[in-house]
Design a protein around this nucleic acid. Structure first.
Lengths: 244, 244, 244, 244
DNA sequence: GATGAATGAGGCTTCATTCAT
DNA sequence: AATGAATGAAGCCTCATTCAT
């Protein structure tokens, strides 16, 4: 999966087209020009994650990115735009990664497992980013409301589609509407991510958590023996099918 | 259900150590003091919900509460304190309500159903409050981190305990650790709530959504064939019963 | 003429009606409240006059007015608003004064003389204010264009009306349209004012200049003997009245 | 009339003491250097006229001139210098044109008429330039004070000299000092120009206005019959000529 | 206890100017 | 000479908080 190696489409236009590095670095990484936008985004991820959007100061992001305050405004229209750009940029990578992870399986249940696993892996690998995406953006009515978030919608759509297809193929129960299931699954995973990110218990094994979560979502909380004990009343309630 | 009849513990000390109502109302209505504090909290819920914490101005809350700006500082130490107090105050009511709702059932699955139903009912009945509790507080690392939230912990504990007890009594599968399951369930419900609160689709039937969510959590997403007696009708219901 | 002793109608509302001095000063001038708007306007006149609008800093005006920076924003919406308010406020006084000066005469030529005299007296008595009204406001396209200035229009109207009436009564030549004549007269007087204000030759006798200006406007530059060779055609052109 | 064929004296030294055209055009068109400087000045006239000096951005002028931001600093020391250079440059042309227009007449009154006519023609033909010269420069104390304007002085001197000579030859009344008369006349014409420029009533016939203005200045506002009634005091002062 | 005018620290943003290429 | 990305000083304005009344 190579998608997001591609040039990160910029919102805050770097002023005038210049898509090849200003100068082909002799060999090294050419600290000159091209990577500035990226450095600013990285700094923003870090600062936003630690201070929160509202308490973060542009000057701090600038310092962390090693640029002047004003430079940020060459790449982003405003502090808001920086957050949104960050979201779009990173979210796209996440979506791409998740889509790719699920693509390599043809089984709905498996796809969901991969989704959860990959999501939590991403979180573990990019704590700061996860915190910003999870916490900062969700938060602000301002962004969620006034900026109807296409990337996030896409993210959910990904899940919903998998579920829908799974249902169509009979691989998943049709008792729950796909959108709702997707939303719930996302909420659960996201909550775990948030938990891990905020409390940051390093001992917690995200891998294992991901596994349990999948079990629960696929198999249900009801005891295996009577998957659906909850409906016991509705059932003849004898069949002890599911054996562990 | 009597929850907030208890004196609302104030964080922002009401100035001049006065912990008994300014006018100790033997039994009467104690209009005075508690009144104003409550009006401020209500106003804060409303304003925070609509503008978000950072964009809300103390003066606006004051106007909405019908008091002077300065008055707010007689009841709360700071804007931060106002948010935290609000959270403590409202969260306690929520916890009480949820606890009460679950108490009236002795069956784990049922308790969970009641939890989900009641939670979403509360959300539907108190949109603004739900938005603040769900969105604003979650958001701010500042609050979640620096202010290790006892009410929220209590909230989760409630769920986890039910699950734990259910597992102990064999009413729930033990494949998932209680805390994790609680967290996931909360995340899912919360996400639905957020969805409803933000997108605010009034056509969406929260009641129904709650039902589906429970199905999913208890019965699992795996096809009814193995899980779901509840779908017996939909299925030939014999085959393919998921063996681990 | 007592007009502008009246309360200066405020644009930047002093926040909440309070038209009586907050506190009836024992006897003195009660440095408390009421005069703050006025002090800010005075400071603004002074600073704008010396630095020009764009080079003036709010903080300097605040310092000069003896208030905090933020206080200015309790009385004026913005720096722009401060300038405009200043203009409205002071211009109204000027208009009132000029109208009053002209009112006490029933002869068009005399009215014009009084206009010129009074205008230049006002300038001499309020250099800073004159500079701001003359220079700063004229200047900024922003203000002259985007803010179609009613006070200034009124000012010119005053003059034009006098000329029109003078023409109607045969006291003034009808060779020039009133509006144009008014504009020209204003331009001339204003230029003199500007000259005096900027170069500030204190030796220059504004009184005398006013006299000469009137002579010129009423009698023309053409030599008295032929009061208007240019108008020879219009005249019996015999009368050699005026003897040098 | 050859005015600006003379090398445009640059204030902002064209970088690296190069005072001869980069490409010394023996006689040819000297395209190079002068070209760019001129384009920048033209752009500046346009932008200053539309936005005002303080609201104009160097980058906008650069864009309009088709050069890079930095290039402007090869020709002008600073933004201020650009305005002043512009003033010097354009004012010189204006002065030359006016001087030439007046030179072709030997009669003082005629010279004045030509002055007024030509001035207003120039205004009509170069609105933007007129706006900058009239509005922007007049305005800023900064420029009028700190930069005692030689071109403008020359401009007035031109007028004053004509009047003085007219008076000496008995062609003009001596009741008014030449400088004052010049100033007044300029003020009047300038005000008309400003009026036309800002309100920009295209229907207004500047030609006609010029005519009326001359009438007024030469013949006076007093009714033709008694051109000079205003000097009654200087007269035998009995005659009640003025009849309605 | 209430009030609300006053405070003033602080941050986002602009934009003239520089300088490496 | 020309470029234009980068700089960073500076200012308007906001708004939580205080305190005299």
């Amino acid at each position: 999966m190579n998608r997001h190696s591609a040039e990160p489409r910029r919102r805050g236009k770097p002023l005038k087209e210049r898509d090849q590095p200003a100068v082909a670095a002799e060999n090294g990484v050419s600290r000159r020009g091209g990577d500035k936008r990226e450095r600013i985004l990285d700094a923003a991820v870090h600062v936003f994650a630690h201070k929160g959007f509202w308490s973060s100061k542009i000057s701090e992001i600038a310092r962390e990115a090693g640029v002047a305050d004003g430079t940020i405004y060459l790449y982003f229209k405003s502090k808001d735009d920086l957050l949104i750009s960050l979201f779009e940029d990173r979210m796209e990578r996440v979506n791409d990664t998740l889509a790719a992870a699920m693509a390599s399986s043809d089984n709905a249940a498996d796809k969901l497992r991969r989704f959860v696993q990959t999501h939590l892996q991403l979180v573990a690998a990019n704590r700061d980013q996860a915190e910003v995406l999870t916490v900062e953006l969700r938060q602000s009515s301002k962004f969620i409301k006034e900026y109807a978030n296409p990337r996030f919608a896409q993210f959910l759509k990904l899940l919903a589609t998998v579920i829908e297809e799974g249902q169509a193929k009979g691989e998943l129960s049709t008792r729950v509407r796909p959108v709702l299931a997707a939303r719930a699954l996302f909420g659960a995973v996201d909550e775990l991510a948030l938990w891990w990110v905020l409390r940051g218990d390093p001992r917690e094994n995200l891998e294992r958590a991901a596994g349990e979560l999948c079990e629960m979502f696929l198999g249900g909380l009801a005891p295996a023996a009577s998957a659906g004990a909850s409906q016991a009343t509705e059932l003849p309630a004898n069949v002890k099918r599911r054996v562990p």
